[in-house]
Design a protein around this nucleic acid. Sequence first.
DNA 1: GCTTGACTTCGAGCACGCTCGAAGTCGTAG
DNA 2: CTACGACTTCGAGCGTGCTCGAAGTCAAGC
Lengths: 142, 142
Amino acid sequence: MRIGELARRSRLTGHTIRYYERIGLLPFVGRDASGHRDYDASILTWIGFLDRLKTTGMPIRTMLEYAALRQARPATAPDRRLLLERHRVQVRAHVAALREALTVLDTKIAGYADTTEGMNDDDGPAEPDDGKPLRARRPRAR
Amino acid sequence: MRIGELARRSRLTGHTIRYYERIGLLPFVGRDASGHRDYDASILTWIGFLDRLKTTGMPIRTMLEYAALRQARPATAPDRRLLLERHRVQVRAHVAALREALTVLDTKIAGYADTTEGMNDDDGPAEPDDGKPLRARRPRAR
DNA sequence: GCTTGACTTCGAGCACGCTCGAAGTCGTAG
DNA sequence: CTACGACTTCGAGCGTGCTCGAAGTCAAGC
């Protein structure tokens, strides 16, 4: 399979596939007689998994770690497992945050419920402020 | 309240607060005698709401739309409602995608379950490929 | 009077994840 | 022989959302 077909089937662009190869997310695949990338269908499984990881917000840098462990073949399984487990914790937290935010959204929308008549134009009362932070600050690693 | 205190209480940085004001996400607030921004505690409610929207992945550009409707005071309530409802649809879809990806993650991790002994080093069999796309392609508007 | 620290404005820079175009090669169809 | 379309490499550019530093002002405490 050449890059064009893989692009169609993976719903990535050729450009993105080459980019992924460049950064090491996709293996450096062999070229055919004309110098074109020649993919095995099994690559779709890997891309599919990467896509899931992407969906869950895993940064490329972490996918690279995982990919590297996979490359460094044998017994890196425990490391990979740990990596995924750690990520799962974050995803679950993210889902929880989303669900909470969704209920806020629901409430807000409900507040606009009959507002065709112009009520509730104030986006809710100012909450009594307890001085507590709105959410945890996450300083960025540098 | 000056910007420092607001920063602490909102868990934003002063820089970010000024940035938000610059782009119109926060109102242009009055300055005190020394030229310092002077905030009312009610701003925390707005920032808190923005934070929820951010959590749900709403792009700033959309928050700006909402903010603009809020400014353009009276009867924009139906528009704001519509905006939030549309966003809610997307958030729900995102949550669904996350949950699905989570089960994939669960399966993967389960596959590594007893891999302390070195089994399952292959990240799963290549799926029989049906030629169907992995997920919908979303061309970017330009 | 001087230092300190919290603020001000302004504009540049950064991290991330692509996205795209230029210029060239290759193989097949007409 | 030519045109085409699909590919190749390379490197620059972009959209998003901050992040940061420089240079200056101001008020309070010593």
